[in-house]
Amino acid sequence: MDREEVAAWLRLLETPHVGRESARRLLAAFGSPEAVFTAPIAARREVVAAEVAKALDHAPDHLPPLLEATWRWLSDDSTGARHVVALGDPIYPDLLLQTADPPLLMYVQGDVNLLSAPGIGVVGSRHPTPQGKDNALAFSTHLSQAGWTIVSGMALGIDGAAHEGGLAGPGQTIAVVGTGLDRVYPRRHLELAWRIAQHGAIVSEYPIGTPPLPPNFPQRNRIIAGLTRGTLVVEAALQSGSLITARLASEAGREVFAIPGSIHSPQSRGCHALLKQGAKLVESAADVLEEFPAKASPSQAAPAKVAHTVAADPLLEALGFDPVSLDALVARTGWPAPELNAKLLELELLGDVARLPGQLFQRVSTG
């Protein structure tokens, strides 16, 4: 896309009162952004509201600096890894095109061909349990090893673990973000974002310079759902953006998977709600892969599982798999609190137990 084309797309999408639906109608009627601007205002009024048709006669005041910043972002890349992909472009992913609200313009840094690779969305809580984070990493690793691209939102928690798993296999990973691609949010993922840009792809529909605005993150979830053939929810509270992604995936006719968890954990309630609504319960990566037999791979022979540690230690057996307080463990074991604390610290150092907020402990399954 040359500078003039980029300018035309930015002008269309940045003109006041022109939302995605109006822009789609205009493009369907006139064929290209350039044709929209050269069309008589009377012709535009047959497609969109009069105020929208009139607004398109004048470029927005902030267009020149935005175009300059966008072109600088594209030009500063010596590797050819930065792209602007518009609706109708030959490399625009077909799966995303089949959704109700595909983005009209996407900014991509990394391997643009991954946008059309077979993908699985892996999403979940920003505040997962240790077991949830381990599950996200294990599932994503095995799915990537089986050739699937892991798509997530680069948030803290489950998203970050999903991307790490994607990077561990040939399937790689795509991060769909809610900022301009000249920014990294959250900053704690700066190094992760660099690795994704080098080996996978980072995608945004937001212009260069866009800060992390709260409304942008639920909006980007439709792209995660749209790029993938299915979405796996690892952990999620009832009021969770992950459930938005799952709903959008279902509405697009894609598969929805959920990992069950403790009935006492708030981070499991979203998954349990999805299961009640018909999502597929999964305990291993093989449960996901069997829904897509055409993408079978020999590497599926060692699928990721929701791990269950063999109970060789009586304290691990007493812990179970739910978060539990020290007082509850005293009641279950009959051991004095100081002895329990010492044993819990030993298991924590071995990686078998995690200490949670609120003076709770949870057994960590590792195999």
Rank of each mutant, 00 (worst) to 15 (best):
D2M: 14
E5T: 10
A8G: 05
A8I: 00
W9C: 01
L12C: 04
V18R: 13
G19M: 12
R20T: 11
A23K: 08
R24K: 14
L27K: 13
F30L: 02
S32E: 13
P33C: 15
P33Y: 06
A35L: 13
V36P: 13
R44W: 14
R45W: 08
V48C: 12
H58F: 14
D61K: 12
H62W: 13
P64T: 09
P65C: 14
E68P: 11
A69K: 15
R72P: 03
D76A: 05
D77Q: 08
G80C: 12
V84H: 03
V85M: 05
A86G: 07
A86T: 14
P90G: 13
I91A: 11
Y92W: 11
P93F: 04
L96S: 02
A100N: 08
P102M: 05
V108M: 02
L114H: 07
L115Y: 04
S116M: 04
G119N: 03
I120F: 09
I120M: 15
G121D: 06
V122R: 03
S125R: 03
R126Y: 01
P128M: 06
P128H: 08
T129R: 09
N135R: 12
L137S: 10
L137T: 00
L137D: 01
L137N: 11
A138Q: 14
Q145S: 15
G147H: 06
G147I: 08
G147C: 09
W148R: 06
T149Q: 09
V151W: 06
S152R: 09
S152Q: 08
G157Y: 04
D159Y: 01
L167S: 03
A168D: 12
G171Y: 10
Q172S: 11
Q172Y: 04
T173H: 07
I174G: 09
V177A: 13
G178Q: 10
L181G: 14
P186I: 05
R187D: 07
H189E: 02
I196C: 11
V203K: 07
T210C: 05
P215V: 00
Q219C: 08
Q219F: 07
R222E: 02
A225G: 07
T231D: 11
V234K: 09
A236G: 08
A236K: 07
A236Q: 10
A237Y: 10
A237F: 10
Q239K: 09
T245D: 06
R247I: 00
L248Y: 13
L248H: 13
A249M: 04
G253K: 05
A258D: 06
I259L: 08
G261L: 06
S262Y: 07
I263L: 14
P266E: 12
Q267F: 04
S268R: 08
R269P: 08
C271M: 04
L275A: 07
Q277Y: 10
A285K: 13
A285L: 15
E290K: 10
S297Q: 14
S299W: 12
S299P: 02
Q300F: 02
Q300H: 04
K305I: 12
K305F: 02
A318S: 15
L326D: 00
A328D: 11
A337N: 05
E346C: 03
E346S: 06
L349C: 02
R355C: 01
Q359A: 15
R363Y: 01
V364N: 06
G367I: 00
